[in-house]
Design a protein around this nucleic acid. Structure first.
Lengths: 360, 360
DNA sequence: CTGAAAGCGCTAACAT
DNA sequence: ATGTTAGCGCTTTCAG
């Protein structure tokens, strides 16, 4: 019932080794006639290599893992497309796992990916503020790397990881400056969840630009929220209870969409009464009512670059220096310096922003 | 360097078999003390099972494959979330592969998933009109199933597959009837790509409702297009060159978004000058300008049901029993009658539709 | 260039 | 209840 390499070999009248070499061997050392015969009988038999067996024998799989919050979120959807296309080009299959921003789930999923011996793991989400959670994740990732697994982070994961970094802080600062340039002085901000580094990073950018301009941003003007429609909506509602901003900065597009919905529900005109901006430039941002001013993050490219980085040959280097995750101090146990790819972002002005009401 | 089960067994002072049973065995036949000892040393050593070896020994993997056009398309994103959550609950990892609606790529990917010995394959996309392509896909899927792989289709894939079917035809008919009810008589339709069955299915529903009402739909009023923003936009542009519909039916939301963009670019008001409807009810449909009237397809549920179906134990040879969609013809080679789950859709009226201009 | 044979890490009979 | 021992299908030394 199951066609094995042995069947192919027998039918071609060659040994197992020859069949293996002819079909999947990297070497070119099989005679043309035999090779052709092997390929022919493989086709006739409908032979398909048994990946788990190959993995066991080769001590290496043909799979890539992508860890994200939610596949259905367009932010991650686009990243995943970039990553899985790059992976496909390298002959790898992509395993996508959602963590819903839960460090425990993330830890479990890292272990699963490790158990599968995925060639590499792309951390598209992650980057928690919680030190204990981070420590546990680092430990799991360390074990994975100790066995040869490659890890690339798309978020701030500490200096020991290869990473692809969009200019979160800088992008948020530029975005804020654009708003300041329009004349806004009263701001409200809806970052992502407080437990994620990326939220704080982007918020930092906003603060930076505001400080520059001497504009204050009190705690009453900041309302953390999940990266979701409902999160953005509810946070906006709470903000409006206690302040009257002329500009609302949502630090994710999905959150901005929720904010727009809340504003619309209250009969406020955007941008007439209040300007709204998002972050990420997800595909539908340009199609909203009104079209959303935002920061373009090169999502697809991030995914692709991450895979490129992950698959790039790594000098296994320094004899006598296999890592040691425990002694965080001292001479770095990892002689291989992590690669970092910085990707610029770009502010995209659309219809959701205008000078504040009363400006002239 | 690599911790194996053997290491764990040795450290616990038990045999390999006992360690295996204590850690991953389904049986309960390990003494409490030993089991505890094994678990303890596994933890101390940081042991992680080696999935490829388990797969080889068990002749079964813990992975699921999802085949779709594009992960970044929200339609598939949401389906994938449903599927991968259900898979995760069953302890499976999800491999997502994009085919970009290309049958050849799809064939290759089916083979890859087969080679990986994914437990089941969910065909979220697929369903081609081309008979030759379909034959080749069926052949590959047949080989996969012959080895015990399970296949569930979310599109029309012929009667031999387990399937989860949204009411595409019916949904399109209902949607069209809603438009007729508003008074529209001049229609234009942008289905999906002509090579996909789902496009024709939905178009059929439109035709059915139109016929009922005695409204004609000439070939000049139908313009096939890829399921994409640009596809919808360009098709709309072409349609407007040769007709002046009062209602534009895009048979996908992403296409409808493109249509809205084109209309806006031409200075046409929606729904004042022309009503626009989509299909799918992707997350951002409600947030567009204007909010899109569409047909809600239970995407997440489809993904989850598909996995449920795929994982449901299958009587290997059970004669008689559940309904059989095929039995008009011969006694098929497959005695197991395919399961079919039909899922209803629902028309959602939003701001993009209104009575035609001039109606009173 | 080709073949024989030793595993890769784990599970599942089959003993005991 | 626990241990012994074959493999699972493939790659890869190592011989010839």
């Amino acid at each position: 019932m199951r066609v094995t390499l042995g069947d192919v070999a027998r039918r071609a009248g060659v040994s197992l080794a020859t069949a293996s070499r002819a079909l999947n061997g990297s070497d070119r050392n099989v005679g043309d006639v035999l090779a052709a015969r092997v390929r022919a009988s493989a086709k006739e038999l409908g032979y398909l290599p048994y990946a788990p067996a190959q993995a066991l024998a080769r001590a290496s799989t043909a799979t890539l893992g992508v860890l994200l919050h939610d596949v259905a979120d367009p932010y991650f959807g686009v990243i995943t497309r970039g990553a899985s296309e790059a992976a496909a080009e390298a002959g790898l299959l992509t395993m996508v796992v959602s963590t819903f921003a839960d460090p425990d789930l993330e830890l479990r999923n890292i272990r699963m990916l490790h158990a599968q011996r995925a060639r590499a793991i792309v951390l598209a989400a992650s980057g928690y503020v919680d030190e204990e959670a981070t420590r546990r994740l680092d430990e799991a990732l360390g074990a994975y790397r100790a066995e040869g697994g490659r890890v690339v982070a798309l978020t701030d994961h500490g200096p020991s990881y290869d990473s692809v970094r969009p200019a979160n802080r800088r992008g948020a600062a530029d975005l804020t400056r654009a708003l300041l340039g329009l004349g806004h002085r009263r701001f409200a901000v809806v970052p992502g969840p407080e437990r994620l580094r990326v939220s704080l990073d982007r918020l930092l950018g906003v603060r930076e630009a505001l400080d520059e301009a001497g504009v204050a941003l009190g705690p009453e003007a900041v309302e953390f929220a999940e990266f979701s429609h409902e999160g953005g909506r509810a946070a906006t509602a709470r903000l409006l209870e206690r302040s009257r901003p002329t500009a609302l900065i949502a630090l994710s597009d999905v959150g901005a969409v929720g904010a727009l919905a809340e504003l619309r529900g209250r009969g406020l005109d955007v941008p007439g009464d209040i300007s709204v901006v998002g972050f990420d430039d997800i595909p539908c941002a340009a199609q909203l009512a009104p079209a959303l001013t935002t920061v373009r993050v090169p999502l697809e490219r991030m995914g692709a670059e991450a895979v490129r980085l992950a698959l790039e040959p790594r000098p296994r280097t320094a004899p006598g220096g296999i890592e040691d995750a425990t002694d965080g101090l001292s001479a770095g146990p990892d002689t291989r310096s992590p690669r970092v790819v910085d990707l610029p972002t770009e502010t995209v002005l659309r219809a959701s922003t205008a000078p504040p009401p009363g400006a002239f």
